[in-house]
Design a protein around this nucleic acid. Structure first.
Lengths: 148, 148
DNA sequence: CCTGAAAATCGCAGTCG
DNA sequence: CGACTGCGATTTTCAGG
């Protein structure tokens, strides 16, 4: 399943992760390739599922989500469907990782206020015991894999 | 600091978060606006720092990072610079949140193997005690704020 | 992987409600 | 003042070498 990527592929990945809207012609310049060859590479990376998509990043604070929190959820049962439904419905839940350890799930949650967060925690608490930590700051700008 | 966003702005944000490479003309169609009006809106959102950037998402497994882990770091001192330097250098550290609670930092780390992860943990352990959990799966696709 | 053309899109004017 | 129209420049796409 792991595809073989040469140095040019990695350069492309680094560039499109940094700027997802870079024109293919400019991208070609950066990686020393013609526009059409670059297009072909990018298409291949997309078709292989290596590049899974392109997304705009939004400043949570500026759109009204002043509170960011990490919630660890200890989920006793094995029936995960109701939880998955909640994840679908609640767009405030930005990320959900299923992990090893005492807490089965780790969620990243955005809320407009502490009252809003409390309400979200209450919904999650139906499924198991929760541990919540507020996030002061995100000390890294977006990053992804940069090389082999 | 919180800007006022109308329903059209939110529609634009939802669309560009879903597909960051959508042409402005197609985006205009989706939100029932002309291309130029759409462009102006998007430019305004970018200039206001609401849209902070556009990024390609990469499948970690397919590019050789088979191991994803969450590391909580309890950092006793107040001198954070050496840690920040490590974050800069190590592109395997994808995300770093400073949080309330017993553990000061929560990191998301990608590694090519357990041996690689062990090495990363050793570097982090210089700064404080660590708690590591492996990630089985990411049960949500990318998502951001969807409305007020 | 490169070249070169047609088609679509982008960016910037000016204009209308 | 925000949104629509028209035109040149750039980019994307697809043919062929």
């Amino acid at each position: 399943m792991t595809e073989s990527l040469d140095a040019t592929d990695w350069s492309i990945l680094v560039e499109v992760q940094r700027d997802g809207r870079i024109p293919l012609t400019e991208l070609g310049r950066r990686v020393s390739l013609s526009a059409s060859a670059t297009t072909e590479r990018v298409k291949r990376l997309e078709a292989a599922g290596i590049i899974t998509g392109y997304h705009a990043a939004v400043d949570l604070t500026k759109v009204g989500f002043a509170v960011l929190a990490v919630v660890r959820l200890k989920y006793p049962g094995s029936r995960h469907q109701p939880l998955h439904r909640l994840l679908e419905e609640r767009s405030e839940i930005l990320e959900c990782l299923r992990t090893t350890g005492d807490d089965c799930y780790l969620l990243k949650v955005a809320a407009t206020s502490m009252a809003h967060l409390e309400q979200l925690i209450d919904e999650l608490a139906q499924f198991g015991s929760t541990t919540t930590n507020l996030v002061y700051s995100q000390t890294l700008s977006y990053r992804g894999p940069q090389g082999p």
